[in-house]
Design a protein around this nucleic acid. Structure first.
Lengths: 275, 275
DNA sequence: CGTCGGATTGAAGATACTCAACATGAGTGG
DNA sequence: CCACTCATGTTGAGTATCTTCAATCCGACG
C-alpha cells in the first residue's frame, strides 16, 4: 500500500530510498478508526502522538461559545492532523471526522527522530504547512469577499481539484460525504440558505447531488461562478521539468484525469534537494 | 539595534550565540522603504530575495477580478513577507504597504545557507509559519461565523494583543495607521458599514479613534463583544518555566504591559533544542 | 481658499438569517 | 412487513444585517 503522506510530500521533493522507506514505515504504527462526527483531536489537546489520516474526510473545526461552528479546512488521506502540537503547545481547534476516518498514530518521538535525521523530510513538512496556509488564505478570501453562490461553487471546485490531484477522481465526480449542515459550517452560512443555493446551482445544471458524491456537470461555469483561480494550490512545479507543457500545470490538473502529480514529483528539483 | 526577527523566533527557541549573530547580521543587507499603498511583493512574483519587515505595517492582500480586495493578514516588524516563494514557486497574493514600510532584502542564497547551517533556525521558521496558520484559521472563523460588530472588535483586540507581545504598546493604545477602507478589506465588509459599526463601538465607549491609533477604552468588553479567545496566538510557553504564574501567559500578556515575551523566550525549552 | 482623500450620514434594496412547517428516506422494532 | 422514529433535506414567510448609491462633511496641505 502506498503511503499517502509520502506521495504528498513527493510533490515537493524527491526522497532517497532510505527516506522513503522510513516514511512508508510510519504506516505500521497502530491505526484507529473514528466514527462519523467523532472528535479525532480535541481543542486543548497536548499530543504524545501525531495523527495521520489514511482514509476518510476530516475537518478542522472551531465551535464558538454561542454554539456556532466553523470549519477551517478539510483533511484527506495523507494529511497530518496535528503537526502543530509538536511545535506549539496545544491544539487551538478540534479535528472532527466528517466521514468515517482512519488515522495512523505516529509517536512524537518517532516524528522527532525523522526530523533530525532528514532535513529533506523537515523541509517537506514545512512545505506542506505552507501550501495549507495558501489554502487557508483562499478560504479567507472566500468568506470575506464572495457571496454565497460563489462561495459554494468555489469550495466544490476546490474539492474537485484536490481530488484530482490525489488521483481519486478521473471524471468530475467528487466524493463529498458531508451533510448540508456541515457544508454550511465550511462555507459560513446557514444550512437553510446553503440548501437554497445548492438548489439554484442544481437548477442551472451546474452540479448534481448524490449521496456522498457531488457531480460537477459544467466544470467551466462552476469555476467561473466560484471566481476560482488555481494558483493558490501551487501545482505548477511541472514546468520545471517539462517547459514545453503548454500552460500551467494547474490548468493541466484541472483538465487531465489523474495521477499527474506523482509524476511531477518524480522530476522535481527543489532548492533544498542538496540540503 | 535589536533584530525583530531574532526576537520573534526566540519566542520559540533559544539560539546559540553563533546563530544569533548570524540572524542579526541579516539586517546588514540592503533595505528599502515602501510608500503607503505601494506593492511590496506582487502576486506571481518569483523571488531571488526575501523581504523582512523591519518597520511599518504591511498586509497580505488579494484582489479579485471584480475589484474586490481582501486582506488576509497583517505583517509587523519581524515578519517575513515571502518565505513561501522560497519553497513554493511563486507568490499567490500581494504584499502591500499599509503604512510606510521598511524591509530588508535577504538574498535567497543567504536564507538557504542559514537553513542548512542551523536546524534550530529552520525549526524556528517553521514554527513561525505555524503560528501564522493559527491566525489565518482564526480569521476564517471571524469571517465565517461572526457578525460585523464582533468581527471588528475581534480584529482590534487581536491587534492590541499582538502589539503588546512585541512590546510596542504599554497601555491600551494600538498603533493602527489604516484607512477605514483598508480596515473594511481586512474584515470583509464595505467601508460604509464598517464606519457605522465603528461609530457604534465608539458610541458605547468601547474604543476611541485617533489618527493612526485606536485606543481601547474597555478591553474587557471589547474582548467579549469580539468573542475573543487568546489560545490561537499560542502565547502560553511561559508555563514551562514558571509554573507558579497564575493562569496562562496568554492572559498575562493581555494584562501585563510589555516585554514579556522576550523573557519567556529566554527560558523556553523547545522539543528541538537539541536537534 | 480650493482641492483632495477620507470619514460620515441617509435612504432604498439585496442578500442571508430565523423560525417553523413539511418531506423524504434509512433504519428499527413491533 | 408495516409503522415509527430520527436525521436530513426542502420550502415558505417575515425579518435583520449588510450593501449600494449618493450626498455631505471634515481636515490636511498646497
Amino acid at each position: 500500500m502506498a503511503n499517502p503522506l509520502t506521495m504528498k510530500l513527493e510533490q515537493f521533493t524527491r526522497f532517497e530510498a532510505k527516506e522513503r522507506i522510513r516514511l512508508d514505515a510510519l504506516l505500521d504504527y497502530p491505526s484507529r478508526t473514528f466514527a462519523r462526527r467523532e472528535v479525532i483531536v480535541p481543542e486543548g489537546h497536548k499530543a504524545d502522538s501525531i495523527h495521520l489520516v489514511t482514509d476518510g474526510l476530516a475537518a478542522r473545526s472551531k465551535t464558538l461559545p454561542d454554539g456556532n461552528r466553523q470549519f477551517m479546512a478539510f483533511l484527506f488521506a495523507g494529511d497530518l492532523c496535528d503537526v502543530e502540537v509538536f511545535v506549539l503547545k496545544e491544539m487551538d481547534h478540534d479535528i472532527v471526522a466528517v466521514s468515517e476516518v482512519t488515522c495512523v498514530l505516529i509517536p512524537i518521538d518517532e516524528m522527532q527522530a525523522l526530523l533530525t535525521e532528514s532535513s529533506n523530510i523537515t523541509m517537506g513538512l514545512w512545505w506542506s504547512t505552507m501550501t495549507d496556509s495558501a489554502v487557508l488564505r483562499e478560504w479567507i478570501v472566500n468568506h470575506g469577499s464572495r457571496d454565497a453562490r460563489s462561495r459554494v461553487s468555489h469550495l466544490l471546485y476546490e474539492m474537485l481539484i484536490r481530488n484530482r490531484i490525489v488521483g481519486v477522481t478521473a471524471d468530475s465526480t467528487v466524493p463529498f460525504p458531508i451533510t448540508q449542515e456541515e457544508f454550511a459550517d465550511a462555507t459560513g452560512m446557514t444550512p437553510v440558505h446553503l440548501n437554497r443555493v445548492l438548489g439554484e446551482l442544481r437548477e442551472e445544471s451546474l452540479i448534481e447531488l448524490g449521496s456522498g458524491v457531488v457531480t460537477i456537470l459544467d466544470t467551466e461555469r462552476l469555476k467561473e461562478v466560484g471566481g476560482y483561480q488555481s494558483n493558490y494550490l501551487h501545482l505548477d512545479r511541472t514546468e520545471q521539468r517539462d517547459p514545453e507543457v503548454s500552460g500551467r500545470a494547474g490548468d493541466l490538473v484541472e483538465a487531465a484525469p489523474s495521477g499527474l502529480l506523482h509524476n511531477a514529483a518524480e522530476a522535481l528539483r527543489s532548492p533544498f534537494r542538496n540540503a
